[in-house]
Design a protein around this nucleic acid. Sequence first.
DNA 1: CTTCGATCCTGGTAGC
DNA 2: TGCTACCAGGATCGAA
Length: 303
Amino acid sequence: MPELPEVEVVRRGLERWVRGRTVADVAVLHPRAIRRHLAGPEDFAAQLRGRRLGAARRRGKYLWLPLEAETPAETPAGTPLGTAPDRAVLAHLGMSGQLLVQPHDALDEKHLRIRVRFADATGTELRFVDQRTFGGLSLHDTVPGDPDGLPDVIAHIARDPLDPAFDEDAFHAALRRRRTTVKRALLDQSLISGVGNIYADEALWRARLHYDRPTATLTRPRSAELLTHIRDVMHAALAVGGTSFDSLYVNVNGESGYFDRSLDAYGREDEPCRRCGTAMRRRPWMNRSSYFCPRCQRPPRVS
DNA sequence: CTTCGATCCTGGTAGC
DNA sequence: TGCTACCAGGATCGAA
């Protein structure tokens, strides 16, 4: 399940293998993969054709590639050079999405949804493959003046904890203001982005916090500590290429990450806590699961 | 306004 | 073996 570290691995792959290339053609093989592009598949392809892709960016679990300005001959007279990009292609991997750079002659993947061919002789193409079709690609206007070309439809997504501009004071204030519980808050992408079920459980285990702890009871040092654990676990995952339980998450070259071997909480029901040896527990939670140590992570008194 | 549950989707697997 | 039921879960939407 791609969360921030996995998406960042993919971003780096796009930056290396796709940035600067000009789109020759786009084939949309499954309409659901393009559903966020309201104008439809034909419009998506037509708008991308002939455009050069800029620097790969990421916020939380979202990825995007700004479209570089049209060639100077087509640029209206008087347009200053170096202005912020005004369009960007946005990608979300959902639960099972993959962006793969493949040779043209590689066999189509079973769940190939979108193919992007380029106008160069590199011999590779970009493929969006997605079994469960929660992910997709789309084209959007960017937030005016944003130097990274942030797509307007994700302007409500909070900065992520690895973003140098992440506002720690605002995060803490929001936690105190909200009447919710800590894991819910971590998964709320408008408060902090990039954290999903896996890294939430990992960070809470490291911080010795129960998932149902009301955020209003967190002191400033406690929330700062939690944030540090979130960053630590994400950096550790990034260092080994992310978390792959199966073939559903891979980098652009189809390779898995190894962080699943380092997980302390997620998926460890009945296994001993790596700190105290107590059997880890799994609890149904919000249509998914929460893994925690019943001894290290005591439930709040009022629940 | 905030909070919260239902919903989308498909392949793998547990259980009978 | 073959069937059913359930599970994984990010983001969105509408209800309370």
